[in-house]
């Protein structure tokens, strides 16, 4: 926490080293979170890239009230939710490819590499209702407590706990015969 405050202060002074440290410290967790929320590697990369970019642009006015990780996790979750809300995922293949073509440009090499086990889990997570998936992913991979997730989903903590319980049961059933 203290380190994060110091890093943000340094970032606000334009320190590239602070940015590198923040990036190294949280990028894996954020990518894992985004990939689990979206079940779309390319989308996850875009979401995390965008979150960091926006964070840097707004760093000068940023005030850390809780944990930096919690803040970034929330940003990723919100952005991923918008991404899903537009049903982008359904169209992702065509539209991502279309973007590629329009730009006449090669996309950067693959940034995020998922293990088979993780891909199995994200595929199963994608079959859960969005609210349950979000609770599980944000609790397990974002490290958010149920109360915080309840605030984000604008429901009671009990509802979040139920979603977590039901979601986890269904996930276990979906993953029954798969490698984990």
């Amino acid at each position: 926490m203290l380190e994060d405050k110091r890093l943000i202060w340094q970032l606000q002074s334009g320190s590239s080293r602070a940015l590198c440290r923040i990036y190294e410290k949280y990028k894996d967790d954020l990518l894992r979170l985004a990939a689990a929320l979206l079940n779309d590697v390319s989308g996850a990369e875009d979401v995390v890239h965008d979150v960091f970019s926006v964070f840097i642009k707004s760093a000068s006015e940023f005030q850390l009230r809780g944990s930096l990780k919690g803040y970034l996790v929330t940003c990723v979750a919100n952005r991923a939710r918008n991404f899903n809300r537009d049903d982008y995922r359904h169209w992702a293949v065509d539209l991502d490819e279309a973007e590629q073509v329009v730009s006449s440009a090669e996309p950067p090499d693959r940034w995020l590499i998922c293990s088979e086990e993780f891909s199995n889990v994200t595929n199963a997570l994608a079959q859960l209702p969005p609210d349950q998936r979000e609770v599980i992913v944000m609790h397990l991979y974002g490290g958010l407590v149920f109360r915080k997730i309840a605030d984000l989903q604008e429901v009671t903590t009990k509802t979040v706990q139920s979603r977590y319980r039901y979601g986890l049961d269904k996930l276990r059933s979906l993953l029954g015969g798969q490698k984990l």
Binding site: P108, L112, I113, S115, L180
Partner: peptide
């Protein structure tokens, strides 16, 4: 929780 991802050095 233990499942992790990796990132490429190039990326």
């Amino acid at each position: 929780k233990q499942l992790h991802i990796e990132t490429s050095g190039q990326g």
